[in-house]
Nucleic acid binder design. Structure first.
Lengths: 193, 193
DNA sequence: AGATTAACGGAGGGGTGCCTCCGGTACAAG
DNA sequence: CTTGTACCGGAGGCACCCCTCCGTTAATCT
């Protein structure tokens, strides 16, 4: 019912101290990354344990609920994505924004969980969304301020658009890039007239 | 193994003759439409039978495989979509194209199977895709010929873009429309310059 | 090396879905 | 109304997944 209603919720999972336990923990996290990427949030936990080469009991000891496991994977990925925002700070406004979005695309492409998370409604998801927006939105604001991006759309519009396109299957990478280009053209400020 | 390798494959399902059997057949199709729309192609067949108010045996008698059931639902929906193409023939090129796309969006929105089908690889899916493209592509060609749509993108690019956006969750209908508008702006021919 | 105990892994009970099979039902023809 | 049979529905076998529990293993400490 009301687990984690107080203080800072966050993930209650900790990397163990014993050597073998640490190995298993990491293997599980790696396998979970893979499997969640392939099958989405509803992937089989037994499959994850199998792929990590550990018993199902070990999985449950480290991550008592599916949510715990997922959150741990997800937090790491979002963190990486947020860092990427710093690396584009010194590019021209539009370019910086686009480069970050491409980065975003690379993540979402293999990790459809991130895509699913845009709509999910949970504590962790919400706070990750906040972090992600905190990283990306300033880039968009800057592009708007520089007159490079339309001002009648929001960052949320753009992010959802991009993530939707990313989650879609295309015949090849070239088509995906082409389509992303089209969509971004729509975001760009129209030449006066 | 090699079922249906000869002649015109198509769906091997027929509406029964006896009154009660016809009733069940229709109920199953209706329930399947609903459930496939809600849960995608991998929905539970027992759920469909339950919702149709018939036994699971009846489902399997009418539709021996999941594919048979799905194909029957899917064929009907694609047919409706193709018809819509005729109704926009007398609108101006760009408008006609956009109106058809909006129609497309309405379908995909509730029937995510159509979206999934863009990438699936089966006999029926392929032929439906052909039909769908046969209906929509001329509209796009016309818009291109009239100088209203970019010529460096293909109809396939656009359709995948739209269906991707449609399958995405948005906070509300208004946002979805806004984003579709942005994307279509990217498809439109840029004002000279 | 030996003791301590954290950590392991998988058996097993419960749930759900897939699909087959067959005793029962009720439509429709005579 | 009777009868033949097309059709019904769900029980049941198999497979997979969830999660718990506990006897066994081996990492760490002394």
């Amino acid at each position: 019912m009301a687990e984690q209603t107080s203080g800072t919720p966050r993930v209650a999972v900790r990397r163990p101290n014993r050597a073998d336990a640490r190995r298993n923990f990491d293997a599980l996290l790696g396998a979970a990354r893979e499997v969640f990427a392939e099958s989405g949030t509803s992937a089989s936990l037994e499959e994850i344990a199998r792929r990590a080469g550990v018993g199902i009991g070990t999985l449950y000891r480290n991550f008592p609920t599916r949510q715990d496991l997922f959150d741990t994977v997800y937090l790491g990925e979002v963190e990486e994505l947020c860092q990427a925002a710093d690396e584009v700070a010194d590019l021209p406004p539009w370019d910086g924004f686009v480069v970050w979005l491409r980065r975003f695309v690379d993540y979402v492409a293999t990790k459809r969980a991130i895509y699913e998370s845009l709509n999910r409604d949970s504590e962790t998801f919400r706070s990750c969304r906040v972090a992600m927006y905190g990283a990306g939105e300033p880039l968009f604001d800057r592009a708007q301020a520089a007159g490079e991006a339309r001002t009648d759309v929001s960052f949320d519009d753009v992010l959802r658009m991009i993530s939707g396109l990313t989650a879609t299957g295309f015949t090849d990478e070239a088509q995906r890039d082409r389509v992303l280009g089209i969509a971004l053209d729509g975001v760009r400020r129209r030449p006066a007239g």
